[in-house]
Design a protein around this nucleic acid. Structure first.
Length: 486
RNA sequence: GCCCUCAUCGUCUAGCCUGGCCUAGGACGCCACCCUUUCAAGGUGGAGAUCAGGGGUUCGAAUCCCCUUGAGGGCACCA
């Protein structure tokens, strides 16, 4: 394998349903891999047994699948560096830790959680920087028969560490501000620092793209790589995604799990486009980019440095654009699928595809998210409409006028030859004039009578689709119910 | 408290590296008008950023330098 091959990984912890910020990181890594013709690897970092959640792995993989971020190596597909689950690679980390201790780069620590807690409290009280005080490093003890010591890495006591971040440039930390972190926990599992360093090396990762919150621990990794004798991959810390309150997006912000957006009727194509533009841009005007456009144009250089607020309104707008851009057949099929799932039981399944095809052009530019569909179309399917009779009465008309207008409509329409939108319009426009009401008033009353709604798709097309019998029946019912309005 | 990062319309961003084309461009949202039987979609126009603030450098700074401020992130036997 050539040395310069790009290999990036997405390394989530299975501690819950991945949220949009997390997946945005995966997307950038995937885009970078695909743009460069490199490899995209998924590695599961389940080294915290207490936080690992049942079902989370499936949610992670399903999130990637939904967006079409296929992976070259990882769970389910395997690969030359299997397994891709850290809990199954414990020996690797334990060996690395042991050799680090032997080489004098790390040491056993016997401090109890209680002592560490007290130490931290004291440091805070004295307003000193918090961090491990290196008691066990100075004592220079071995395992000492302690059944569960931790292993800490020896950070340099002085000097500074500088590394180059692909997005931020040179970043420097004083080594004195970085403490001796735990690499191997008392339960024998590694911490992130050790596990990811060992795996990134073993898996030949060339670039680490991760969220900005990792920036402060990068000096640790610099020294870990060095002590292990590994070359360090290039690093790029992606800007964080914020909630409306401008703090890091998290569960308390509500709808953050990526898969929730699928439930809410968002299209994966729109989601990808939107997420890609959260922290990256092509130029000063391009908003709509397909997955291929993104792959072709993605570059780390054009990732912004500052954090971005997740703007749901823009996502929703973009989703509408993608829905409108869907082919008629494609949209109809998706609409039918949704209706089959969501319509009331009284409607026979599967819903007629031809019927749905005739409805689709009437609603396509009114759909913002796919979950709008039942609300937008149910009157096409339901037998009985449920609406307040008062809605029939238009501004400037009395109930009696309305009853009369609707009654005349029934009469006029009963004799119409061809039940088409053009024919209907040809009958009803003159009727308004004859009745001496505004077209808006007549059509408004008919709209409510026929759809049960004040806002609906274009009236004549809608009536044409509904058919003569249903329209006349609904109009007659309306005439009867409007008499109950005082 | 300590460390790091960031800072252009309400929001996402272009411009910053390679000062002048920026009296700062686009998009979402908002407002108005047009289209129109309603709601959308579409079209046109508008409000909205003294480029966080202050100092420099320069003939000239959103762009370079310094300081300040603000915001975010990190400071676990979590990732």
């Amino acid at each position: 394998m050539p040395d310069d091959r790009v290999r990036v990984r997405y390394a989530p912890s299975p501690t819950g349903d991945p949220h949009v910020g997390n997946i945005r990181t995966a997307l950038f890594a995937w885009l970078f891999a695909r743009h460069t013709g490199g490899d995209f690897i998924v590695r599961i970092e389940d080294t915290d047994t207490a936080r690992t959640q049942e079902g989370s792995l499936e949610a992670i993989l399903e999130s990637l699948r939904w967006l079409g971020l296929e992976w070259d190596e990882g769970p389910e597909v395997g690969g030359p560096h299997s397994p891709y689950v850290q809990s199954q690679r414990r020996e690797l980390y334990q060996n690395a830790a042991r050799s680090l201790v032997e080489a004098g780069h790390a040491y056993y620590c016997h401090c109890t959680p209680e002592r560490l807690h007290e130490m931290r409290k004291e440091q805070q009280r004295l307003k000193q920087p918090t961090g491990y005080d290196r008691l066990c490093r100075e004592a220079g003890r071995g395992p000492d028969g302690d059944p569960s010591p931790v292993v800490r890495f020896k950070m340099p006591l002085e000097g500074e560490t500088t590394f180059n971040d692909l997005i931020r440039g040179e970043v420097t930390f004083a080594n004195a501000t970085v403490d001796d972190f735990v690499m191997l926990k008392s339960d024998g599992y590694p911490t992130y620092h050790l596990a990811s360093t060992v795996d990134d090396h073993l898996m030949d990762i060339s670039h680490v793209l991760r969220a900005e919150e990792w920036l402060p621990s990068t000096p640790r990794h610099v020294h870990l790589y060095d002590a292990l004798g590994y070359d360090m991959p290039l690093v790029a810390h992606l800007p964080i995604i914020l909630g409306p309150d401008k703090s890091k997006l998290s569960k308390r912000h509500g709808d953050v799990a990526l898969l929730q957006y699928r439930e809410m009727g968002y299209l994966p194509e729109a989601m990808i486009n939107f997420l890609a533009l959260l922290g990256w841009s092509l130029d000063n005007h391009t908003e709509l980019l397909s997955r291929d456009d993104l792959v072709n144009n993605f570059s780390i250089e054009r990732i912004v440095r500052s954090a971005a607020v997740f703007n749901l309104e823009k996502l929703t707008w973009m989703n509408g654009v993608y829905i409108r851009n869907l082919g008629e057949e494609e949209l109809a099929e998706r609409i039918a699928g949704i209706l089959d799932e969501s319509l009331s039981q009284e409607v026979a399944r599967p819903v007629s595809r031809d019927y749905v095809r005739s409805i689709t052009p009437l609603v396509r530019e009114r759909i913002r998210t796919m979950t709008d569909i039942p609300e937008l179309t149910d009157f096409f399917f339901l037998r009985d409409l449920d609406y307040p009779p008062a809605d029939l009465v238009q501004r400037g008309l009395e109930p009696a006028d309305t009853a009369n207008a609707l009654d005349s409509t029934v009469e006029r329409l009963a004799g119409v030859g061809e039940w088409t939108a053009e024919a209907l319009e040809g009958e009803l426009r003159p009727l308004a004039e004859e009745l001496n009401v505004k077209t808006g008033q007549l059509f408004g009353a008919i709209r409510v009578a026929v759809t049960g709604r004040k806002a609906a798709p274009p009236l004549f097309e809608t009536m044409a689709v509904l058919g003569r019998d249903l329209c006349l029946e609904r109009l007659r019912k309306a005439v009867a119910s409007v008499s109950t309005v005082d």
